[in-house]
Design a protein around this nucleic acid. Sequence first.
DNA 1: ATCTAAAATGATACCGGTACCATTTTACTG
DNA 2: CAGTAAAATGGTACCGGTATCATTTTAGAT
Lengths: 337, 337
Amino acid sequence: MQHRSDRRATIRDVAKAAGVSPITASRAMQGSGLVRPKTIEKVVQAAKQLDYIPNLAAGTLSTNASHLVAVILPNMSNSIFADTLQSISDSLRDSGYQLLVGYSDNSPELEELLVRTFLSRRADAIVMTGHMHSDETNTLLRRAGVPIVEMWSLNDKPLDTCVGISNFDAARSMTEFMLDKGHRRVAFIGGLLKNNDRTQSRLEGYRAALEAAGLDYDPDLVREVPFEFEHGSLAMRELLAARQKPDAVFAASDILALGALLECNQQGLSVPGDIAVAGFDDERLASLIKPSLTTIGVPRQAIGEKVASVVLSALRGAPVDQRIFDMGFTLVERESA
Amino acid sequence: MQHRSDRRATIRDVAKAAGVSPITASRAMQGSGLVRPKTIEKVVQAAKQLDYIPNLAAGTLSTNASHLVAVILPNMSNSIFADTLQSISDSLRDSGYQLLVGYSDNSPELEELLVRTFLSRRADAIVMTGHMHSDETNTLLRRAGVPIVEMWSLNDKPLDTCVGISNFDAARSMTEFMLDKGHRRVAFIGGLLKNNDRTQSRLEGYRAALEAAGLDYDPDLVREVPFEFEHGSLAMRELLAARQKPDAVFAASDILALGALLECNQQGLSVPGDIAVAGFDDERLASLIKPSLTTIGVPRQAIGEKVASVVLSALRGAPVDQRIFDMGFTLVERESA
DNA sequence: ATCTAAAATGATACCGGTACCATTTTACTG
DNA sequence: CAGTAAAATGGTACCGGTATCATTTTAGAT
């Protein structure tokens, strides 16, 4: 922990060493195009000599631009979000923006706290997951004066802009797909509904498809569990223990579907022979396991890229005319259903 | 994108509204304990009234403390690191620190860039993964004047402090374990070695165990592939296609081991009957699949907590006497080996 | 060589907090 | 109730960049 007693070099030190004024040094480092090449050279040399490291806090204070884009995700364990995050990160890097990431754990209170911190740090833009925010959060965001993007779920009237897919349509499509295959008792293993518009919409889509097919909604066929592998297994075990077993199961995530598949394996049921199983997300594993998993493909990367491009144009002052970007999903038919 | 034309409230505005001086308002908001409760109340009310949001850039500039802890990870897709990150985040939250996360993609150049940015943002501490840095990065870090923690791998002479496990010992133990079981042709499926001290140490541990057992190191039994499920399968396929098949496989991550297991399944080989398989990391899935996976358990959460506690004591000025924290691993014996 | 527009450079102030030190107010003591 | 220490509060300056506008230098035209 070798703390150096000598103060770090400032732009003024660099300027002095280069024999120019601080503001010229600043412009030289910024590549503003206003400085003569020879002068830039002098400044850069001086900076290198002095191990100059600019202080972005000062820059932020002065320009009111932090070059930070804040992103709030539900959690850090879901690889789905990781892919989108990666894609946002990659797309923003070249423009000199850095990500400030926070995890809300699906708690509106935590989310509000995060928004406050991000505003305090003067994030240049804020990217949220979903559109279920506390009233206070909504107020904060509306007043924020920075671009806001809500991603993953579509939303009729976003705070500002939204980029995502219709979870409702996707879930309805998959349910219809199974019904079309002749299944009549289609169960639904969904994630926790609270504060999660994605899981809610998926359940609604499932119900809508049943209704359209003239089937009754049977609560016994629906399980609401955390998005964890083992809960997929447990839910499946419960469904299979019932007097009237399902002939198909639609899980609202591949993780849950995998758990369900495993349980079928354990019980010696053939998939899709005895029971069909479908997932949601199209995770890497989905195509690799046996039987490969029928699922909903979500353009995670495209979502990230679109989010980044929306943020960038907004930050460049280009008016984003479109406020809702439907990135579309695909129903990926494989072996399991 | 409703930008408000009116300037955001500053601490001076709040102070004026509360009828106190800016510095008193500042102290009231900070909870410094120097302000009378009645005054605090006035200030807090005024702040709420004005929708005051403090500007942390200004605070950082003034106090030279950003309340940011920077963390550099190899990638964002590996859940192993996510768990540690989560644990660091949780442990630091209460002390008011926020994480600034960057991903190096195992590239020393990217890592250096990240370090520069983090120093520019005046991160209060920097947490790195591993200890393979460019010379320039080492210089930067040594001069940084902030606590540095290198995590995950142990290191004889860390830049500052390091918290992790001995990948060498872990790999050697697992290899010995398999040899003790009577296997004689133990293959090794490892991750890419370049710029990754964890994979390198694991390979060395594997070799050391062979050597100790008087066995020759056979390059044909070693595969160096990316840490991806499908590469585990591919590597296993290659190993099984050879004239002399292995009787055991040690994969340097559970992801690879899963891929390998799958390939065995495909080929109708029984595990561990025909061939034993072991992994590394003890991921969630490891205990759930069939056969459950014998693997190396890494205290991911404990690593995160220790990292956080080291960072916190350093930031509080408490001298951390110990510089190397060996968090230990466990060999988790399950069905697959 | 002279003039003018464009290109470079610079002086000063400001961004919004807080450190530092001085001053005032409060609370306690005898 | 004075006297004193402790508790609150405030004035001023500063952190390290850059915006703004003024000034100087350079390059091109005549």
